[in-house]
């Protein structure tokens, strides 16, 4: 019985410490020292929020660079319900084959490769990251190769030179962190916003 009383009292004290004091102190420091990041690295344009630097958006217009496929529901890049496709490596819905009803289906990857071709990115092999869904469904990045594939199409759709587009891509390519960590990537939303600005000028 004594132990039960101690359990209840200690539970309350530790709850206050780890569930109230700790997150509040961290929040206070974060909001003081890293205000922009702590609030979601939001991007504003003309006074309204157009997204977050860390959260991707869907694009299928030829004049924009396309992001990676997103498996969030009910629409891609739903930042209120993150998640991946969870398709297994042999699932016909991903790689094609006979589905459970015995019907031959092309699979998501084939559809995406086809969509890229239709939009005008048809030369060369397609980088794998550009046609596979990310884990979060919110991946803001694509690989530099995936950007390369789309440069000619975007330039044509915007009436810009490929070199001009490529220069903007290069400016938004992030190398490995400290030259070692992770992979080199291109931030798609920032790149597309920069393209819109460049074209207006």
């Amino acid at each position: 019985m004594r132990e039960l009383v101690v359990a209840i009292r200690l539970f309350i004290v530790l709850t206050v410490l780890t569930g109230v004091v700790y997150p509040l102190i961290v929040t206070w420091i974060a909001q003081t020292a890293f205000r922009d990041k702590a609030n979601g690295s939001l991007i504003s344009k003309d006074g309204k929020i157009v997204g977050s630097r860390l959260i991707g958006q869907p694009f299928d217009d030829p004049k924009y660079f396309w992001s990676r496929p997103s498996a969030t529901v009910p629409f891609p890049y739903n930042a209120a319900a993150s998640g991946g496709s969870n398709l297994g490596p042999l699932n016909p819905a991903l790689v094609g084959g006979k589905d459970s009803a015995g019907k031959e289906v092309p699979g998501a990857i084939a559809d995406r490769v086809e969509a890229l071709k239709v939009a005008g990115s048809s030369e060369g092999k397609v980088p794998t990251d550009l046609v596979t869904a990310s884990g979060s469904g919110l991946d803001p990045h694509i690989s530099p190769e995936a950007a390369d594939l789309q440069v000619a199409r975007v330039a044509k759709a915007r009436g810009m030179t490929s070199d001009a587009v490529r220069a903007i891509v290069n400016a938004h390519t992030e190398p490995r962190q400290l030259g070692l960590f992770g992979e080199p990537v291109v931030n798609v939303l920032e790149l597309n916003l920069a393209l819109d600005v460049a074209q207006q000028q």
Partner: peptide, 16 residues
């Protein structure tokens, strides 16, 4: 089979 650059298993992984 789909003419991708690599077979590396990118499905469900983050680019960064």
């Amino acid at each position: 089979r789909h003419g991708l650059t690599t077979n590396a298993n990118w499905e469900g992984k983050e680019a960064r």
